[in-house]
Amino acid sequence: RNRTTFNSSQLQALERVFERTHYPDAFVREDLARRVNLTEARVQVWFQNRRAKFRR
């Protein structure tokens, strides 16, 4: 699988949700994935990586 590149509008939407919660539930992830046209799995991994970055 190739690395996913996120465009600025996708990142903006992802970061907005991250500000609200670092652990979005499945419903939030599904909705977000639909809105930014990504798979739920990509959204889930983005949050895992974003939390790791946040802890650094």
Rank of each mutant, 00 (worst) to 15 (best):
L32T: 04
F18S: 05
F54Y: 15
V45H: 14
R50F: 06
R35A: 11
R50H: 00
F54P: 07
T21P: 04
L11V: 13
F47N: 02
A13T: 07
K53F: 14
F54S: 09
A13E: 15
E40L: 10
Q44N: 09
R3H: 10
F18G: 01
N37E: 07
V45S: 11
S8Q: 13
T4P: 09
F6H: 06
T21C: 09
V28K: 01
N37C: 03
T5R: 08
L14R: 01
R56L: 10
E15V: 00
A41Y: 12
R42E: 15
N7Q: 04
N7P: 02
F27Y: 10
W46F: 04
T4S: 13
Q12R: 07
V28S: 09
N49G: 05
F18C: 01
F18N: 00
V36A: 11
T21K: 00
F47Q: 05
S8V: 08
Q12D: 15
R20P: 00
R1C: 11
S9V: 12
T5G: 12
A52S: 06
R51D: 07
L32Y: 01
T5Y: 12
R56M: 11
T21H: 05
D31Y: 07
D25G: 07
D31H: 05
F6W: 05
L11T: 10
E30L: 13
A33M: 05
N2F: 06
A33L: 06
R35C: 05
L11N: 10
R42M: 15
Q10G: 03
R35D: 04
W46S: 05
Q10A: 04
R16V: 09
E19T: 14
E15P: 01
F6I: 14
V28R: 04
L32R: 03
R3M: 14
P24M: 04
P24A: 03
E40C: 11
F27A: 15
P24C: 02
R29T: 14
L11G: 07
R29K: 01
R55L: 09
T4C: 11
Q10V: 06
E15M: 02
R16K: 14
E40H: 05
D31I: 01
R3T: 15
P24Y: 01
W46D: 01
F47E: 04
T21V: 06
N2K: 11
Q44F: 06
R51L: 05
E30P: 00
A13R: 02
A52I: 03
R50K: 07
F54I: 15
R51P: 02
L38M: 08
T5Q: 12
N49T: 11
R20N: 08
R29C: 13
R42T: 14
R42W: 07
R50P: 04
V43R: 01
V28L: 12
N7H: 05
L32P: 07
R56V: 10
R29A: 10
S9G: 09
R50G: 01
D31N: 09
A41M: 08
Q44K: 12
E19L: 06
T39I: 05
R51K: 00
N2Q: 06
R29D: 01
S9F: 10
R16F: 08
Q48G: 00
E15F: 02
R56S: 15
R42C: 15
Y23L: 06
V36C: 14
V28N: 01
R1W: 11
A33Q: 06
A33I: 13
T21M: 07
N37P: 00
E15W: 04
Q10L: 04
N7D: 12
V36L: 15
A33H: 00
E15Y: 02
E30I: 08
R3G: 08
L32W: 03
S9R: 10
R1P: 09
F47H: 06
Q10P: 02
V45N: 10
F47W: 01
E40V: 12
A26W: 11
A41T: 15
R35F: 04
A52W: 02
D25S: 11
K53W: 08
K53C: 13
E40K: 13
L14Q: 02
Y23P: 04
F18M: 02
Q44R: 12
L14D: 01
A52R: 10
R1F: 08
A41G: 12
R50M: 14
Q12I: 11
N7T: 15
R42N: 11
L14V: 03
A13P: 03
R35K: 11
V36E: 11
N49F: 04
R34E: 09
A33E: 03
V36P: 00
E30M: 09
N49D: 12
K53I: 15
T5W: 06
Q48Y: 08
L38R: 03
S8N: 11
N49L: 13
K53H: 07
N49H: 06
V36N: 12
R56I: 11
R55H: 12
A33G: 05
V17D: 02
L38W: 11
N7K: 01
T39D: 13
L38D: 04
F6S: 06
V28Q: 13
Q12E: 14
R20S: 11
E30K: 08
N2A: 04
Q48E: 14
R50Q: 13
R3K: 08
A52H: 08
R51H: 01
N49Q: 09
Q12C: 09
R34C: 04
R55C: 13
Q48S: 07
F27H: 12
E30T: 12
N37W: 08
N2M: 09
V17A: 09
Y23D: 06
Q48M: 12
R29S: 06
R16T: 14
D31C: 09
V28W: 03
Q12G: 07
S8M: 08
V17Q: 09
V43F: 01
R3N: 15
E40T: 08
T5C: 09
N2H: 08
Q10K: 02
K53E: 15
N2V: 03
F47P: 02
R1E: 09
E15Q: 01
S9L: 10
F6D: 12
E19G: 02
R35V: 08
K53D: 15
N7G: 04
L32D: 06
E30G: 12
